[in-house]
Amino acid sequence: MHRYIIKRILFMIPTILGVMFIVFVLMRVLPGDAVEIRYAEEGTFVSEEMLVQERARLGLDQPIWHQFVKWIWGIVRLDFGISMWTGRPITHEIKIRLELSLQVALMATFFATLIAIPLGTMAALKQDTWVDYVIRIFSIAGLATPSFWLGILMILMLLIYFKWLPPMFFTSLWKDPGANLSQLIWPALAVGYRYSATATRMTRSSVLEVMREDYIRTARAKGLWEKIVITRHALKNAMLPVITVIGLEFAFLIGGLVVTEQVFNLNGIGKLFVQSIAQRDYTMTQTLVLLVAITFIVVNFVVDILYAWLDPRIRYQ
């Protein structure tokens, strides 16, 4: 077991380095750079001389390999550098947005779990009855509604029927819970519904799978009391893959709410992400991709270890 864990940790290093390399190259392959975009955007003409000078300030005139090594050396010392667009430290820019993103992700996960586990279990226990169908239609509808569209509809409804709009800027939960929740509950609902769809399906199929196991079948045949005990027991076993899905989705929610954040005007990591790609803010995009990748890899790792620990049948490969 220990060897397995150590091996897995060592494997993370090349993966992370690879991600760093890909994003570094990808950003530089994109046409245009931060300087060009900054000045071309408004249609104002600025001299080539000024562009050259601004590039030099950002270190873009140095050889590519030099920039790469510099970046990696910085990361090793936990120095993420400054944003090429605003000139402020990247850690500062991320810190401002992280609280909001984490909170939306947590709230959405909460909603999703609240919906998914009972519905998914019910659908499995009543497989191929109308209960199952209704639940499946409800959850697939969640997958089928583009989240940006759902967001726009929600905002319009609030505006038209309640003449009210969620607050336009973020207030910390600890400062003013009312303002905070009235802003974040809507996107959390919109995202949570979609996210619950995946989780409901996963719950349904893994409960179904456990129900097919022999010991459960026997128990169910024996009588009511056993039925209850075993069903509860079975549920516990079935939750493992569900937790995996929830965990991985959660990792993505932090950086992946690109369109939803735009529709609800949330100052989160997803918006920063898209903005930094559009602005060719190399350093910012690189750091964000790195963070999302590390989160993903670590969550994945934890899930794998959990599996191995809980289910000794899994071979450590």
Binding site: E36, I37, A40, A278
Partner: peptide
């Protein structure tokens, strides 16, 4: 075209 390629072209 997206901003970057547009200005480039």
């Amino acid at each position: 075209e997206e901003t970057g390629p547009f200005f480039g072209d």
